[in-house]
Design a binder for these strands. Structure first.
Lengths: 156, 156
DNA sequence: CACTGATCGTCAGTTAGGCTGACGATCAGC
DNA sequence: GCTGATCGTCAGCCTAACTGACGATCAGTG
């Protein structure tokens, strides 16, 4: 077996390539809605209720300065509103607008359709299997539910 | 179900996140070998025999100017050699060096180890299933074996 | 009350990645 | 010998993302 094939048939490489392909389709699907992967994701979190930008950073893992740009973009399209918090005037209260909620719903529906399309080559059972396996693997690697050993006293 | 969860539990999102995690580990594994994902991949193709940079572009899908940088990097570390082709003096003949071949072998072995580690949360059967499903999905979406409809006469 | 340290959002500046366009050198066909 | 195409190279641009600094604000202290 050639070395090039040894790389190309790796599970990790397949994962990477498929993710790239899927991402491109997702971005393409979102374009008509004036959304991108990250902005949709943030918008979905805003839909949960009023939050500060800092909250969104913690929830999405995005950088604080990147979040400024994402909110700017969402605000420019009228999907969210920025208001100073009354209780803590350092914070911005981000809330979803009616247009934002509607667009979010439509975008999610379109995204589901695109994903179905992308997974169509697999039979329904295969799709379930894939989702199950990816979920299990993700849960095992997700830093938020890392089964980290009890912190040692001398550790920093 | 909250909109945020509707996004996070998507197969496409899981794919993307897992690919990101896997890629980070791969890059980390390759660092001691002075290789990166792309450079390793190119090196693997060079190992197949003497090729021109253009050939490598076609095989890997990288841009021609990006390839210059990749070869530069590989050459700087002594993994490949650049020679003018005798039959076509426009072309550079890229050939792997002894150090390149040795490093490639070691890096591939390390990569296999990292991947096993990454997939460890799944049982052996689950790992096989995952690889099978990803392979099938990739084959269906790979542009190189696209089952494109016969080109219509009036099409451009 | 003033003072100190921390937090939040913002912006400027830097870095890295990749691409476009142009170039010289070379080839193939006429 | 011309003409058009190909190969590798480089300069320049664009995007994404992060670092560091900043003003505004808060909480806690004396």
């Amino acid at each position: 077996m050639r070395a090039a094939d040894a790389v190309s048939t790796t599970t990790g490489y397949l994962l990477l390539k498929l993710a790239t392909l899927a991402e491109a389709r997702m971005e393409q699907t979102l374009r008509p809605f004036r959304l991108r992967g990250r902005t949709l994701r943030v918008l979905a979190f805003v839909d949960g209720g009023e939050v500060s930008q800092r909250d969104l950073c913690r929830q999405t893992g995005l950088d604080r300065t990147t979040m400024v740009a994402v909110i700017d973009e969402l605000e420019a399209h009228g999907f969210v509103r920025r208001d100073r918090s009354l209780s803590d005037r350092r914070k911005q209260v981000i809330s979803i607008t009616e247009a934002g909620r509607r667009t979010l719903g439509e975008a999610l529906a379109a995204l589901r359709h695109t994903e179905d399309d992308f997974l169509a080559p697999l039979d329904p059972d295969g799709r379930r299997q894939l989702h199950r396996l990816l979920s299990a693997l993700f849960a095992a690697h997700d830093p938020r539910c890392q089964p980290d050993e009890p912190p040692e006293p001398g550790e920093r």
